[in-house]
Design a binder for these strands. Sequence first.
DNA 1: AATATTAATCGTATATTTGCGATATAATTA
DNA 2: TAATTATATCGCAAATATACGATTAATATT
Lengths: 110, 110
Amino acid sequence: MAFSKKAEFKDDEIAIAAFAKAISHPARVAILKVVAESQSCICGQIVEVLPLAQSTVSQHLKELKEVGLIDGTVDGAKSCYCINWTAFEKVSQMLNQFFEKTSCCKDGCC
Amino acid sequence: MAFSKKAEFKDDEIAIAAFAKAISHPARVAILKVVAESQSCICGQIVEVLPLAQSTVSQHLKELKEVGLIDGTVDGAKSCYCINWTAFEKVSQMLNQFFEKTSCCKDGCC
DNA sequence: AATATTAATCGTATATTTGCGATATAATTA
DNA sequence: TAATTATATCGCAAATATACGATTAATATT
């Protein structure tokens, strides 16, 4: 491949793709659900629920944290995760907008 | 890795992830925009606009076709692509619902 | 202090994705 | 009919992603 061409696209296209990528694996979708529903958000609880090893879950959490969808706080030996609602809604809106904008010119094709 | 664990998640989680994956690359986001805006939807036009080789664009188109977001019709030597609006809106709704449902339990965490 | 628990990170194996050139196929044009 | 055009597909190389066990570091428990 030589090198990735992602950077050659428009900023909004890159942003949409990046957020979509964050929820492009069932494990991360599941994690977001668990974290949103849970009161405590302890990493160990997520591991219990998912069919994945602790290290793998930790990696997925890291990815979600990197795009900003969740926040992580160290709480003693444990780690507490929670949804970053501001970011969460921003992503929701961004995707919504993409679908709306794209579907606005719904004529004359084919 | 031995093998993928994607199948071990819930159907709706897998579905959301699959559609998110379809728009998880800027090239495919760009293609969807071009196809939606274009009247003609000829593959060659898409290739002209994108910073990618013809074969690469063809592959991305194939992926979008496979998840059902676009339809492709052979028109002589050319190929005509257009958005499958039914699928498009279904995906839009599915993602929307995911974000809404997830954010409905927005309390007591962390 | 010694041990156990929790979770991040490292190293590694494998799988998947991305990207391209070359080729194949089919239709169009000269 | 020959040359050109349009696009899909094949085969390959490189990049990324997925998954795990082992290790580490830090706190908690005994």
